[in-house]
């Protein structure tokens, strides 16, 4: 628990400290800058909805990253898994002639399956050949993006579209909006439910127990009959599936079409979110909300206070470095 609070405080300190410094360098008062940011994120119900939308987009991959982390695996491939999950949803959402009640769950599951396939591929490489999952997932990111660019620019291209994107999804494949006149869909509820499910899985189930053992003490886990290779594969596949599901919800609930630019780096920011949430699904909800505020408030900050949005990208990157670096050092020391 102390670690959770400490990590959260580090994150908040980095955000406000470095953020203020960057704003001062841009000749903007940090009070105005952060004021515009928070006002833009939480100033009225519609803005809160946008913030929750960002929260949702971050929550899925963050839960995926956390699941892999709990198994001792660093999945930095969530970005590619989002892209493939989204692409699958974009293609199938248009292609399948089904009513919404069937179409939505099938397309969501297909998106998850695509992300899971991608994560599982990294897991297979690790389990079978001992490949380093950091490198495998990172490389698969690039491949996913190129694959999507090719498929959407070629075989599945929407005729006449100006960008590489699928035709718009039929309304039957749109996720129902939960707050009228906003873009916030049931994907938010889905993400919260997933967090609760993961909490239960980690805490109570044999699977979660074995996953945590493999992550916290691999040698002891192996000797306790836990198949490390299979655990790595399953963890990375599930991690990818969760990120892929997130990608599908972006396509079905937000963009209503697939575009290779569907994620402005959610898969990477998710690493910071997972770490700030100390890999605990319920804390990750709060962490995702915090980063959701940054993501959505950054736009208003740029418009209203003239602070470049890159300031937010900068502080997000520094949070990753601060927390991932610290975790890495601590683990090396105790190893």
């Amino acid at each position: 628990m102390q670690r959770t609070v400490r990590d959260a405080l580090i994150a908040v300190a980095v955000v406000f400290g470095v953020g203020s410094l960057a704003m001062l360098l841009a000749h903007v008062s940090p009070i105005n800058g952060f004021g515009a940011l928070l006002d833009g994120a939480l100033g009225n119900p519609s803005e809160v909805a946008e913030t929750l939308l960002q929260t949702t987009a971050l929550l899925f991959p963050a839960l995926g990253v956390a699941l892999a982390f709990r198994a001792g695996l660093f999945n930095i491939g969530a970005e590619g898994q989002i892209v493939l999950g989204g692409m699958t949803a974009g293609i199938l959402g248009v292609a399948l002639p089904l009513p919404g009640l069937l179409l939505i769950p099938i397309v969501l599951l297909a998106g998850a399956a695509a992300g899971g396939l991608w994560g599982g591929l990294a897991g297979f490489l690790k389990a079978r050949f001992g490949a380093n999952e950091v490198i495998a997932t990172l490389m698969l990111n690039t491949i996913a993006l190129l694959l999507a660019t090719y498929l959407i620019g070629g075989p599945f291209k929407q005729p006449g579209a100006g960008a590489a994107e699928t035709p718009p999804l039929p309304a039957a494949a749109w996720l129902p909006v939960i707050i009228p006149n906003t873009r916030l869909s049931i994907s938010f509820i889905l993400a919260l439910a997933l967090a609760a499910t993961l909490w239960y899985v980690f805490r109570r189930t044999v699977f979660g127990y074995e996953l945590r053992a493999a992550g916290d003490a691999p040698e002891a886990a192996r000797r306790a009959g836990i198949d490390l290779g299979r655990t790595a594969f399953t963890a990375l596949a599930l991690s990818g599936a969760i990120a892929g599901l997130g990608g599908a919800t972006i396509v079905m609930g937000v963009l209503h079409r697939f575009n290779t630019g569907l994620s402005p780096g959610y898969g990477f920011i998710a690493i910071a979110v997972a770490l700030v949430g100390n890999l605990e699904p319920l804390f990750i909800i709060f962490a995702a909300f915090g980063f959701g505020i940054l993501q959505s408030g950054a736009i208003a900050m740029q418009a209203e206070a003239n602070v470049p949005r890159d300031v937010v990208t900068l502080v997000e990157g520094l949070v990753i470095i601060a927390l991932a670096g610290r975790r890495f050092i601590v683990e090396r020391r105790t190893a």
């Binding site: 972006i250 575009n259 630019g261 402005p264 736009i299 208003a300 949005r309």
Partner: peptide, 22 residues
Amino acid sequence: VAVLQSKSASDYQPNLTVLANK
């Protein structure tokens, strides 16, 4: 005047929405 730049297609709606909200 205010300008919001879009880094990816997923930025279009948030950018437009923020200006509408404001």
